[in-house]
């Protein structure tokens, strides 16, 4: 049977409906962005326009916002498989014609779409606050260099990595809490590299940013293949650890 977007859509739809009524997911999706809009805004307002470290300040502010696409999907995805297993819904789902690639893509997109929307909205709000309240020098510093591009580019790429790590951990776990902790831990490494760049430890340049982005994209694709290989219907259904 060929890959079916109808089946992907069915799971995604179900997933988004379920999120909306899941207090834990709603809580995560509200708390993480709230926190990571407050911190960068404080950074921004407190910034000294004459400081030579202005670029660093801005780098830090934007970095805070990149925590959103890392933590949010990793928490949600960690739940995605082991959670279904705990509520006994995994077996009925896997008893349908669904193929593993469809199942995984659906789970990934269901986490990716809201993450992207929320992360970009938060960034937009941040830019809005900056335009309204920050010193014009700060605003022009934000648009200078590759800050905005880094933000737009790395948000989906970091989310992709966090999603595959989260799903991978989830297919292997027997406990939701443990899965979430491991998943958040596993999603952090690429953020560190981005941090080194944002904080000017590695000197920032458009070429470097694009290069890093390409590498991260390659990692995301590899991670997707690896997760698809790890997906084992029998083990998931019988709950057997190998």
């Amino acid at each position: 049977m060929s890959f079916s977007w109808t089946r992907v859509g069915a799971i995604m739809h179900k997933e988004l409906r379920d999120y909306r009524r899941n207090r834990f997911v709603i809580g995560t999706m509200a708390a993480v962005p709230a926190l990571f809009i407050i911190l960068p805004t404080i950074q921004l307002i407190a910034a000294n326009t004459t400081s030579r470290a202005l670029s660093l300040r801005i780098g830090l502010s934007l970095l805070y916002m990149l925590v959103i696409p890392v933590t949010m999907p990793s928490v949600v995805c960690a739940y995605s498989v082991v959670g279904e297993r705990e509520q006994g819904t995994l077996e009925p789902i896997l008893s349908t014609p669904i193929q593993r690639e469809e199942f995984l893509i659906a789970k990934a997109l269901a986490a990716f779409a809201p993450t992207l929307v929320i992360a970009y909205v938060v960034f937009g709000v941040f830019l809005g606050i900056a335009a309204l309240f920050a010193h014009p020098a700060i605003v022009s510093a934000i648009y200078a260099g590759s800050h905005v591009m880094v933000q737009l580019l790395f948000t989906p790429l970091l989310a992709g990595w966090a999603i595959w790590v989260g799903i991978a951990v989830s297919t292997r776990s027997t406990d939701v809490r443990v899965a979430q902790q491991l998943s958040v831990l596993g999603s952090v490494p690429p953020l560190i590299i981005v941090a080194l760049m944002s904080l000017n430890v590695i000197s920032e340049s458009t070429e470097l940013a694009v290069g890093l982005a390409a590498a991260l994209l390659a990692f995301d694709l590899l991670a997707w293949r690896a997760v698809a290989q790890m997906f084992d219907r029998e083990r998931l259904v019988t709950g057997r650890r190998r």
Binding site: A10, H13, R17, G88, S95, T96, P97
Partner: peptide, 28 residues
């Protein structure tokens, strides 16, 4: 074919129709 496992395995936060909608999609 279809299988009804030992425990119903429904999405408890979804309505009856929403549960069935998901599976209708899965069977295309």
């Amino acid at each position: 074919i279809s299988m009804m496992p030992e425990s119903p395995g429904l999405y408890l936060r979804l309505t009856v129709t929403e549960n069935l909608l998901c599976f209708a999609g899965l069977y295309e």
